[in-house]
């Protein structure tokens, strides 16, 4: 369907990892009115693939992510992650939400450790140091959330998901609440981290440039009820260097095309 048919990544994506078959979701509010958030949605993500879900606000993007995470019930056929039907959250999945869910009584190190503590493990100091280094948080290990900027909090939230060494990372507009500069910076960091860790990632976003810069594939959702209206392969070479990637004509073409699809151009 997409203008770019082939999907080429540095490491070619592997076997099918996530599959949604005809998934619907209807919310019923207190007064009995029903809102259809998703309608018979099909979706497939391959192993080690970075897929962004792009759509207007209120189109059910976050609902979709919560269903994949096992946080929300759904109607329809099936949701499969790594060969298993999803019925509740899995230990090998990391979720990062728009608000950094940090515990105010724990410092950075302890908030990072929470990711594995919940499995009854502890975070050894070498791994903690490596994570802190990768997130660019060196020197902030013993700071508390109220002493951190919004961008730093999101780094910690991302780190808390990464220390679990998840097979799948679900990101729900993780940088959506940040200013444009911080957001750009964190996208570059995320690109670097993904290129080092090669997880399967599903990113929900409403930023077209963010989606194009990071993804192997962008799924465009329609307005409510959400359906995949376009599946766009992002054929930019990997590893991507943020500056040159953004300056390439292919990048502008994809951004323009997606903008047209979403009706912003």
């Amino acid at each position: 369907m997409g203008v770019v048919a082939s999907t080429v990544a540095a490491a070619a994506p592997g076997a099918r990892f996530i599959e949604l078959r005809r998934v619907s979701k209807t919310f019923e509010s207190g007064d009995g009115s029903r809102t259809e958030a998703l309608q018979a949605l099909d979706l497939e993500v391959r192993e080690r693939e970075f897929v962004s879900i792009l759509g207007p606000s209120g189109c059910g993007k976050s609902t979709l992510l919560r269903i994949i995470a096992g946080l929300m019930s759904f109607d329809g056929e099936d949701v499969v992650v790594d060969g298993e039907s999803v019925s509740r959250p899995r230990q090998d999945v990391g979720v990062v939400f728009q608000t950094a869910n940090l515990l105010p009584w724990r410092n950075v190190a302890a908030n990072l450790a929470l990711g594995v503590e919940i499995r009854g493990e502890s975070l050894d100091s070498a791994r903690l140091a490596a994570m802190v280094e990768m997130l660019g948080l060196t020197g902030f290990e013993s700071r508390y959330p109220h002493e951190l900027s919004g961008g730093m909090k999101q780094r910690v939230a991302l780190g808390q998901a990464l220390v679990r060494d998840p097979k799948l990372l679900l990101l729900d507009e993780p940088f959506g609440a940040l200013d444009a500069l911080t957001r750009d910076k964190l996208n570059i960091e995320l690109l670097r981290i993904w290129q080092a860790e090669q997880k399967t990632v599903v990113l929900v976003t409403h930023s077209i440039t963010e989606a194009v810069l990071l993804s192997d594939r962008v799924l465009v959702l329609s307005g409510r009820p959400g359906k995949v209206i376009e599946d766009v392969g992002i054929d930019l070479p990997r590893p991507r260097e943020p500056r040159t990637t953004r300056q390439s004509p292919e990048f502008s073409r994809l951004v323009g095309y997606l903008g047209e699809l979403m009706g912003v151009v």
Binding site: L71, P89, V95, T99, N101, G115, I118, R119, R164
Partner: peptide, 15 residues
């Protein structure tokens, strides 16, 4: 949002 976060982390009720 923190309760949902703990659910997403797969935390058992006593944790």
């Amino acid at each position: 949002h923190l309760v949902e976060h703990f659910r997403a982390l797969g935390a058992p009720p006593w944790i």
